[in-house]
Structures are given as C-alpha cells and as structure tokens.
Nucleic acid binder design. Structure first.
Length: 757
DNA sequence: ATCAAATTTATTTTT
DNA sequence: TAAATTTGAT
C-alpha cells in the first residue's frame, strides 16, 4: 500500500488520494501525469473502494491506453479483463458490439477509417448526381463529422441557407447509406453509443452504476460529444477524475474544446482543483522560457512550472541566412552533441509543418547521420493491406459496398465502370446491397460478376472452419492478391506486407486473449450443437464478458485494423535522430530538442491568423515544443526559405522575441525583435562556403524587362498579353492572357517567355 | 482500360 | 517544388 504512494510529491499525493468526488488535475508538462493517473487507479483498488469492474479509464490514443495498462500492472496485479481501459473509440466499439441490437447495428458492422469515409461520401455524391465542384466531398465529410461531434443527427441540424440545406440533405442520405451497408465511421461510434445510453434507461443505469470511477487522460483534448458522453456515463453519482493541461491544448482544429475544462468544473461542481507544477523533466532555463512564453496567452487557467534541477545550459539560438544554412547549423550542433556522448535517438528536430522535413532530411542524409521521420502511411493504411482488408470485410459483412467496390475489379477481372453502374442501378431499384444485386445484372458484365460472387462464396465456404491466420492466408491466395503482386514488378515490398498481415493477426489473437484455433468467423460462445448461445442482457452486462464472447476473431481483427492503424515509423530500434512535427512530439521528451523554422508565417503559421484563438493555439504549440527538452534546447530560423517552389523572405517569429533574454545565448547577432520591424540587414557573419548558394533569379533587380500590355510568346500557350505584374525580387509573377488558353499566372523566374517583336 | 499529361494545391492528426 | 488528383488520348 505504502509503496505505491512512496516518492509522490505532496500535490501528486493529494491528487491520488482524493475522496470520491469529481476532480480536475491540472498537470503541467513533465509533472508525472501518467504516474498520478495510474497510481490513482491502483490506490482506489488497493483501498478496496472499488473493484476492477468499477473503473473506466479513457485516453485518446492506443499508445496512451497501453502505457497506462502496463504501468498499472507493475503496481497492481491487474485483471485486465474487467477493466475498461481504452480509447474513447475503443470503448464505444465495445459498447456497440455488446449491445448491437439495441444500437440497431448488424453484429458484424465494419468501421470506416477516414479514407473509407471520404470514398463513401464521394460515392454518395456520384450516385445522387451531385455536382462535386459545388459540394466538395471534403467539405461534406467535415460538415458531417462536425455535426456528429456536436451530437447532431441530420434531422437536428437547422440549415441557415440553401447550401446548408443541401448539406443536411446529403448528411441524411449518408446516414441512410451507412446504415444499409452496416458501416460506422469514427464519429458515429461515439454518437451511436451516446444515443444508445441516452435512449435505453436500463443500459444507462447499469453502466452508470457500474463505473463509479471514470478517469480521463488529456482532458483538454475532448470534443463536445466526448464530454457529453462522459457526462451521461457518469450520471449523478460517479466521479470523474480528469487530468489535463489547458496550455497543451493544440487540437482545437479537430474539434477539441478546452472550454470543457471550465464546463467540467461547473457541471460537476468540482471542489478539488489540483495543480501539478513540479517538473521532473527540464532544466531551469528551458522551463523559464516556457513559462515566460505561455504567459503571453490570455485565456488560461494559470500555472507556473518549477524544477529542482539547476538552470542548466542556455537556450542556443541561431539566425541563418537560408533554410540550407539552418540545416548546416543543425548538423554542426548535432555532431557536437554526439561527440559529447549523447545518443542520437535522444535528439529531436521539430518543425511546424511536414514540408519542412525535406531540407532537413536532405542535409542529414548527405552528412550520413541516421534519422527517423515520424508520420506518413501506417501499416493498415497501405493500399495492398486495404485491399486485403476489404476482402475480409466482404466476408465479414457482405453488405459493405465500400469494400465490395474496392476489390470487385482488383485484381482486374474485366468488371468495368459500365458494369458497376448497372449493378448500382439494380441495387438501388431493389434496395439491396451490390453483392445481392449481382444476379439481376445480365449480359457480359453479369457473367464476370457471376464469377466474382462465386469466388467470394467459395472462399467463404472454404474458410468457415479456419482460424484467423489461416483464413487470411487463404483469402490472400484465393482472391488473387498474392498472384497479382508476384507478377507486378515492384510488388516485392507489397507481398512482404501481405505476409506481415498474417503475422499481425497471430499477434493480435494472443494479445487480445482469443483462442489461436477458434474458427475466425464465429464467436466463442458456441454450443456443441453449433448453435450460438444467446447471452441474456443481464449476463452480457453483469459478467465481465471478454471481447472474444461478443465478437468473432475476424470482426475483432477488422476493428483493430480500423481503430489502430499501426506503427507509422520506419526502422524502429536503431539509434537515429528523431524528426517530427511539433504536434507529433506531444507527450514525448528528449535530451536535446531543435525547434526549427521559427519564422512569422511558418510558426506561427500564417493560416492561424485567420482562425480565432489561432495565435494562442500556435503559442501553446510552441510551449509544447519547448517543454519536450530535458537538457538542451536549440532554436533557429532562416531569412530566406524555399517554399512551394517560391522563395520566401520571412522575419523571425514573435515567439522568439517573447522568450526571456537571460535564458538565451545568441549564436548570431541578436536583432531588435525583428517581427516588429520587418526590414533588417542581412547577416554576413555566417560561413556560407560549404553551402550551395541560391542564385538570384534573372528578374531580381526589378522587372523592367517586362511591361504591362506587352505581347509575349510562350512555348506552350503561344502569344499572350501581359495584363498584370506582381511581386518583387524572385517572386515576380505575370498575369498573362493567352486567349483561348485563358488567363495564366506565371512565375517569371521559371516560365520561359520571349518578347514578341 | 490504361497511361500520360495537365492541373491543382500545399498546417497541424488520432480514432 | 512536388505530390496528388483529374482530364484526355490512345
């Protein structure tokens, strides 16, 4: 008992041992947040206040959920079965699988990931003959998700204008289509389970009664629907232990609402607000910089981090003439750190947007320094894996038209667009799935479709008794996917990934406690007669029903594929420099951190100026970046930078000017807070000899060469008239009317023009 | 049905 | 610049 509370500081101890009331823990960066969360659970269990089944712990990422579980099992011999520890989406999935009938879902509903959702919407627009220039699929997806995350069904949305009226109508059609096809998108998991509990008093009271303690990680990231969901589940008697940091709220752009922290204090009459301000991560200078920076934000609950560690090294900052020089400087400093004995994986290079990684990678590559870039395609998002998954989904749920369309002609089997159109027409006429509509299609297309249906059915029959890995292997072979990639010249990697899918399935079964040998298509609850033993509602709810009782191994694996897209980092394990956006660095820490591209327009990003609260969110982002560093912090910016094929001339970020002088060491001469007066002298102090220099574009000294009204000749477009000139220096662009080719805006440093004499 | 050319567009991202 | 998507041609 005592041992788990050992070494907690007074605030942590207070938080862990709070009475059973709702509480808000303001946990600063590096203040031992996860420790408090897991110790709280262990303490509740050890003091006998609650049993494992009475606890729910919610996180945003699978990684965080796993981390919590593994740290908990060190402190307490956990029966993982009974505890509901998982992501919002994972827990909602569990609710919906358990009560699929009450939720009006088929037992084996499939989950759409964002890619799937977008293609579903595109298909919807096409079948309804909607002009997708007028109603872009992306906008519709945004509209739908936004509505769902506010808790609104199509019927609840009050359209403000004709455009919205149409969007609502399409939202409604989308709802119908998903329902028909037995698929559910991410937001739907939340909304559907919210509605389930709201509508069904028995269920609601059961779960409210059961989960006496609900713990929420990263509370500042909750969206409105997640907050409503928590409120509903907590009812009047359960307590919510919410841990979060308003200063680290960086996901407003995807619906996170920091305001939930304030609402929570009111709605739950929170008496206990505890601040964890003791930082165990960073040296003093780094913390002071972070504190000073974030103090520029107006809307805060307020918090100041402190440390027992000394002030440590100063923060080193460099103004580079160009992005190339900036990288050169990073290289020098990195080599220095490595020579001092720092591990490469303890060094992170952070940037605001992914596009910035290119130059950095290039530099590291040339210098032969191993690095690892975070982000990019994850395992289950790869095309070949998505194809394989689609075959599996079709076997799991034949109504899934998205899956059907993805593979009906992949590998190619002569089923063309025309045939598909006929099929879709038939499906619509008879109100059935594409799969069921096949017999209605006659002619050549009908024959090809006929063999497809026979293929799927024969696979399904063959696969009936198989366990999951064997089933997948069989599907890969019989579908022709293997053969397809064997014959494709660049298919080797893809084949390897497909093989990995089989191993992923094996790993999944053992991790989730499924029997390795059970038939993949059936749940374990099978009587000797082969009939499903129906659990009563009470049994389902009261017993701690393992996932394997409510989902077949196949359904469970498909869910896993959608909800946990897998690793997105290459070459794990190697000692390599870490490259990532500031967003993906959240939650991580490193001995040394480089924050690059500290320029107005980049960081803070220019687009953020248009959103309200945008600048404060950018500043929080900077705060997150700074607080990643343990011992060393490096900042840099460049006077010129190549972006989207154009040269950009940036001034330094206001965030640089907001940092306290005494914590900084300038490696280039310091400028007067240059973001306030954009015109400044270029520095000549930088050694540029080792760096390829940008050549000044031909039109650099004003564009006397070209005049408005002049006729010019272009290789492709022929004769045209200059109607406008804009920009300066390298940025000169000309608006030229090329008659039948229309108006073109050409970059004069790139386009080759001739004067028409 | 497939590939090449043209056009467009470029924050941040987990589930 | 470069990647992704759409259009157009064979």
């Amino acid at each position: 008992m005592d041992t788990i509370l050992d070494n907690l500081n007074p605030e942590q101890l207070a938080a862990v041992t709070l009475p059973s009331q709702s509480a808000l823990i303001l946990a600063g960066a590096g203040s031992g947040k996860t420790r408090v969360l897991t110790t709280r659970i262990a303490w509740l269990l050890k003091t006998g206040q609650v049993s494992t089944s009475g606890i729910m712990a919610v996180t945003f990422t699978n990684k965080a959920a796993k981390e919590m579980l593994s740290r908990l099992s060190v402190m307490f011999p956990v029966n993982a079965r009974g505890m509901w520890i998982g992501t919002f989406h994972g827990l909602c999935n569990r609710l919906l699988r358990t009560h699929y009938q009450d939720a009006a879902l088929p037992q084996s509903f499939n989950i759409l990931d964002s890619q799937d959702q977008l293609s579903t919407v595109k298909r919807l627009l096409k079948t309804n003959n909607i002009d997708d220039d007028k109603y872009p699929p992306r906008n519709l997806v945004y509209f739908i998700n936004h509505a769902k995350e506010s808790g609104y069904r199509a019927s609840h949305v009050e359209p403000q204008d004709d455009y919205e009226r149409k969007m609502v109508e399409l939202y409604s059609l989308y709802e119908d289509q998903c329902q028909r096809e037995g698929v559910v998108d991410f937001a739907e998991l939340l909304l559907r389970s919210y509605e389930l509990l709201e509508r069904n008093q028995t269920l609601r009271e059961h779960y409210q009664d059961r989960f006496r303690h609900i713990l929420v990680d990263e509370f500042q990231d909750t969206n409105n629907l997640q907050y409503k969901w928590l409120k509903l589940l907590a009812g009047n008697d359960s307590s919510i232990f919410a841990v979060g940091d308003d200063d680290q709220s960086i996901y407003a752009f995807r619906g996170a609402n920091v305001g939930n922290m304030l609402s929570f204090q009111q709605d739950f009459n929170v008496q206990n607000l505890i601040r964890l301000e003791q930082n165990y991560r960073s040296h003093g200078n780094i913390l002071e910089a972070a504190n000073t920076l974030i103090a520029h934000n107006r809307n805060r609950l307020g918090k100041n981090l402190h440390t027992d560690a000394g002030e440590g090294e100063p923060i080193r900052i460099c103004e580079a003439p160009s992005d190339l020089n900036e990288v050169q400087w990073i290289l020098e400093e990195v080599n220095h750190l490595i020579r001092e004995g720092m591990e490469r994986k303890q060094i992170a290079v952070l940037y605001r947007s992914n596009a910035q990684s290119r130059v950095i990678e290039h530099g590291l590559f040339s210098a032969g320094i191993p690095y690892r870039v975070y982000g990019g395609l994850r395992f289950f998002e790869r095309a070949e894996i998505k194809h394989a998954i689609a075959y599996l989904q079709l076997i799991d749920n034949p109504a899934n038209n998205a899956a059907f369309l993805r593979v009906v002609n992949f590998p190619a089997r002569g089923i063309g667009a025309r045939t598909i159109e006929n099929l879709q027409e038939m499906a619509r006429m008879h109100d059935i799935s594409l799969f069921e509509a096949i017999p209605y299609v006659s002619g050549k297309g009908g024959t090809a479709l006929g063999s497809f249906i026979r293929l799927i059915q024969s696979i399904r029959a063959e696969v009936q008794p198989m366990n999951l890995p064997t089933l997948i292997q069989t599907v890969l072979e019989k579908s022709g996917l293997m053969m397809h990639y064997q014959t494709e010249k660049e298919g080797a990697d893809r084949l390897e990934n497909l093989e990995q899918l089989v191993s992923a399935a094996m790993l999944f079964l053992s991790e989730e406690g499924f029997s390795q040998e059970a038939p993949a298509l059936m749940t374990e609850a099978v009587t000797p007669a082969g009939e499903k033993s129906m659990l009563t509602v009470d049994e389902v709810m009261d017993a701690d029903v393992p996932l394997s009782m409510i989902m077949s191994p196949l359904s469970a694996f498909l869910t896993h594929a959608s909800l946990e897209a897998g690793e997105n980092q290459a070459q794990e394990g190697q000692d390599a420099l870490q490259l990532m956006t500031v967003h993906s660095a959240k939650g991580l820490e490193f001995d040394a951190v480089f924050i690059t591209g500290l320029e107005e327009g980049l960081f803070p990003h220019e687009n953020s100026a248009r959103e309200d609260g945008g600048l404060e969110e950018e500043r929080r982002l900077m705060y997150v970046a700074i607080t990643r560093a343990r011992k060393r912090l490096y900042l840099s910016y460049a006077q010129t930078r190549m972006l989207h094929g154009h040269m950009r001339y940036n001034v330094s970020s206001r965030f640089v000017a907001e940092l306290p002088d005494k914590t900084m060491k300038w490696l280039t001469p310091k400028k007067q807070s240059s973001y306030l007066n954009p015109r400044h002298e270029p520095t000549a102090r930088f050694d540029q000899s080792s760096v390829p220099q940008m050549q000044a574009p031909a039109s650099f000294h004003k564009n006397s060469e070209w005049r408005i009204g002049e006729t010019v000749i272009h290789k492709k477009f022929g004769e045209g008239v200059i109607v406008g000139l804009e920009g300066q220096g390298a940025n000169v662009r000309a608006n030229i009317n090329f008659g039948r080719h229309g108006m073109k805006l050409l970059d004069l440093s790139i386009a080759k023009l001739e004067h028409a004499s």
